[in-house]
Design a protein around this nucleic acid. Sequence first.
DNA 1: ATTTTTGTTCATTTTTTCTTGAACAAAGTC
DNA 2: GACTTTGTTCAAGAAAAAATGAACAAAAAT
Lengths: 197, 197
Amino acid sequence: MRLALLSHRRKPANGRTHAHGQAQHHAPTEPPPERPIQTRPLNAAERELVEWFVDFTALMGVPASVGQIYGLLYISGRPLPFDNFVERLDISKGSASQGLKFLRVLGAVRVVSIAGDRREFYEAEISPTRLVAGFLREKVQPRLKESDERLARLKKSLHEMESADPLLADRVQRLHVWSQRARQFLPVVSGLVKIRT
Amino acid sequence: MRLALLSHRRKPANGRTHAHGQAQHHAPTEPPPERPIQTRPLNAAERELVEWFVDFTALMGVPASVGQIYGLLYISGRPLPFDNFVERLDISKGSASQGLKFLRVLGAVRVVSIAGDRREFYEAEISPTRLVAGFLREKVQPRLKESDERLARLKKSLHEMESADPLLADRVQRLHVWSQRARQFLPVVSGLVKIRT
DNA sequence: ATTTTTGTTCATTTTTTCTTGAACAAAGTC
DNA sequence: GACTTTGTTCAAGAAAAAATGAACAAAAAT
């Protein structure tokens, strides 16, 4: 039920090296166009922290790949290019693309351009708060709204019909009140999270 | 990513009638031992409200069967016996058993005995708040704790090693502070929810 | 003591979710 | 214009989560 602590995720176990040979098709006298960003694999501590993020974000029902991406960005402390995620986390381009999109929508990550490099670079918010608040705003809030509207429709239709069960009507009424409170309450939570961090 | 609004759940579509024949092996003069609880199928409005609960609880990553069970109990306004869930919701005994256990642990539902009936009866809390608070307490809180401890371990091990990356150490430190705040904050949320409803 | 009723457990099946990778598009280079 | 680089989309495969149902246990009825 989506609460698997340590949710044994996919581990392809292929030692893909990605030693993609820096295409040296330049005149031998020119220096090769060094790319400023590391492609070094993660060390043990880094992997552990990335895994921590995977667990943490799983709490919100977010897929592992998204947690990994945010984690890597968070510990890097500087913008990383798209392909860096694919290579260092060993995930597919598809996952990287979707994961980054997801994080962009949440406002947990933003795109930056680096002069002289055509690739898209990404930078993380320094506080995971953004992630949580974005999640509440973009994912939870809309569903609460939907829920509330659904309840309003049901209430109305029960009102219109003659032989409606009074107990049922009472329940719907209670829920509607409750649901509205919950909706008002959510932004307060987001706000508090934001202020305190 | 576990946010499917209207998550087209299983619908076996078998018109199982469950007209399990009230075993009339009594002397013909005795009245048959009428069971006090209805086994009537849900009408449209009831089904709609039960579905509402399924959607609502899905927000917390709770399986549909659990949402259904709580929903039925909520709209019934009186204790229902175990087999009532199996029959009226058309779920398996296994799901009913596990779902009720889950709700019991959360404190959203409690067992009651009815004189002259051997079966277990269940009753719901009248406010969904119990459900939410129970979920935070039983499911979220422990994982935040686990997360926090994991971070503490990592912090310690980084501290011990000589060649630790200072940036990484900084990140772990930040996260630890953040995580502790989050943990302290959660009970406040539960508390607020409780008070306001 | 045997049978029936009531409910739990857990291996298996079914459904849903996640990831992958190939096809494609949009720009930039040669 | 042809080729490369960079990234997106989406059908299909892999993995995880949920539901089922049969075997089992406990308690009550006969």
